[in-house]
């Protein structure tokens, strides 16, 4: 299976839940904001059920990159995307595709916790109803249990979500995303505004979600990437060409223990970035 492309497949280090079958194929993806090119011709395959980390310094285009995958990039009027993204072999840019369905399938958790100004339960109920799910209250409970929030909030479900702490809010946002039964979950530095304990909870959660969902996580925290990821893509800003690019992609172990690229060697060795 893809042995030539992925030489590490032989000594497979991934968890069994993580299939080496690409879920997302990114082909020659380029993005510019107005005249400014952010990245160009990115090619990447994301494996089914795996956690793929995206690391790299600030402002090299990581957030912009993942927001192409659920087409949230389109809210920026100046953004121009070219190339293609295939999910299960189907292009997400197909004009027949229902954008709301795509975003249900490809959930996102933002950097800042972003509960809506509704009650705790309504934050999950509203999207469930919108997507015509049944057994709403069971699903709410299940999602909240999955993120380990149920016991903390089961008696205050009708209170405003904004009353929760930062870590609780972020887990509520994850519950809201997984309640919709996505196939892919994008996370943009989900722990960067959380305290260490909440971070720990979120990392455990990512471990639990692995296998059920294909996860792409941006993180600044290299130790965290090392703990949670199966694969890692390193983004870097090329000062000469003035664009971001992926300088190395591979198994998490390889990127951290045995990187081929000199910049990555220095970066994970803590010398750069």
């Amino acid at each position: 299976m893809n042995q030539n492309k992925y030489p590490w497949v032989k000594e497979l280090g991934c968890k069994p839940c993580c299939e080496l079958k690409p879920k997302i194929k990114i082909k020659n993806l380029s993005l510019s904001y107005g005249k400014r090119q952010i990245f160009e011709d990115i090619n990447l395959e994301i494996n089914t059920g795996c956690v793929t980390g995206i690391i790299g310094p600030s402002a090299c285009g990581k957030s912009s990159f993942i927001s192409c995958l659920n087409r949230m990039i389109e809210v920026v009027p100046s953004a121009k995307v070219s190339g293609d993204v295939l999910i299960d072999g189907k292009s997400i840019f197909d004009s027949r595709l229902d954008l709301n369905e795509l975003r249900k399938k490809v959930g996102i958790v933002f950097q800042e916790p972003t509960p809506l100004p509704l009650s705790i339960e309504s934050n999950i109920i509203l999207p469930l109803k919108e997507h015509k799910f049944d057994h709403i209250s069971e699903r709410v409970e299940k999602a909240l249990r999955d993120v380990g929030l149920w016991n903390e909030v089961k008696n205050i479900l009708k209170e405003p979500a904004n009353y929760l702490s930062g870590g609780q809010k972020q887990r509520l946002c994850m519950a809201r995303t997984i309640a919709l039964g996505p196939e892919i979950i994008l996370m943009d530095e989900p722990c960067s505004s959380l305290d260490p304990i909440s971070t720990d909870v979120v990392e455990k959660l990512i471990h639990d979600l692995k296998g059920k969902y294909t996860i792409i996580i941006i993180t600044h925290n290299l130790a965290q990437a090392r703990r949670v990821c199966d694969f890692v893509a390193t983004f870097w800003y090329d000062g000469e060409k003035e664009i971001g690019q992926i300088i190395e992609f591979g198994r998490c172990i390889d990127i951290f223990e045995n990187p081929k690229n000199k910049i990555v060697q220095d970066y994970v060795g803590g010398l750069k970035g």
Binding site: N100, E101, F110, L126
Partner: peptide, 19 residues
């Protein structure tokens, strides 16, 4: 965020405006 989040959850405009 109150605009981005509804979009990212695939909520229709009617729901977003109403809720």
């Amino acid at each position: 965020n109150y605009r981005l989040v509804p979009l990212s959850l695939g909520l229709g405009r009617t729901t977003t405006i109403r809720s």
